[in-house]
Amino acid sequence: MAVNHTGPSARPLRLSPAARTGARLVRSFAERETKALYKRNVLGWLWSLLKPLTTVAVYSLVFGVIYRATAPSTANGQAEVFALYLFSGLVVWNVFYTIVNGSMRWMDGVSELRKKIYFPTETALIGGAAATLLQSSLEALVLVVIMAVLANVSWTLVFLPVAMLLATLFALGLGFAAAIVNARYRDIQHLTTIVLSVGFFMVPIVYTPDIVPDRAYGLPVARLVELNPLNSVIAVARDAVYFLDTPDIADLATAAAWAIGTFVVGLAFFRRRSMAISEEP
């Protein structure tokens, strides 16, 4: 078979000057965030794993041991470890949570700077999100290694990064909006923390979807959990790494539609409003 050397793939990637500038800024802000996270710790990257692993341990103790929650079996049926079921959902949740919360901080970090020099402000948030995704990849790697030890791995793992990327886009979309509103009304960051802590229990992370009652206190609880956009993203991640199933195409489509839609709308809103914020005294 002839190889076409002049095809588009043979040419080096060529970006417009504006896109190149944007890419450089994203990289700078991502490096800055990564350094800020690990500079002061001798343990470096390992230290960053302590928090998610502690969360897994604590929730496993409370829900798995004390409440005796049971997890569905993994693909090979060898393990019904609640901690791993939890971990596979938590990996995605952490990406989402850290980016939504971080967006407001990343925005504040550059708002003074933006009053003195022009640059596309969204690059600070995208850079922060990229750093978060990198850090979460390490968590995901730990999860995959544990699964490998239990001989519970398959090609479906390729969907784990897809789920994490979709969580990133979804979170960035919300983060763009939160950062803009928070720049004006400072209590939004506190409200966001509250909403996120409620949100954590609105997705099946510490419980399985099948134990949710249809109705409780007059509310269609099962439906609410199901409609939560993150539910689909977490379902994709769980299929990928826990059940080793090809993710349900409906889940994947729903997750992608929400993630891309939220990102596009959030970015458009951010671009419209960020100029006005840099003009405030």
Binding site: R20, R24, L25, S28, I117
Partner: peptide, 9 residues
């Protein structure tokens, strides 16, 4: 960072 903002690599 300043360089990146000015479009310099």
């Amino acid at each position: 960072l300043n360089g990146a903002m000015l479009g310099l690599g």
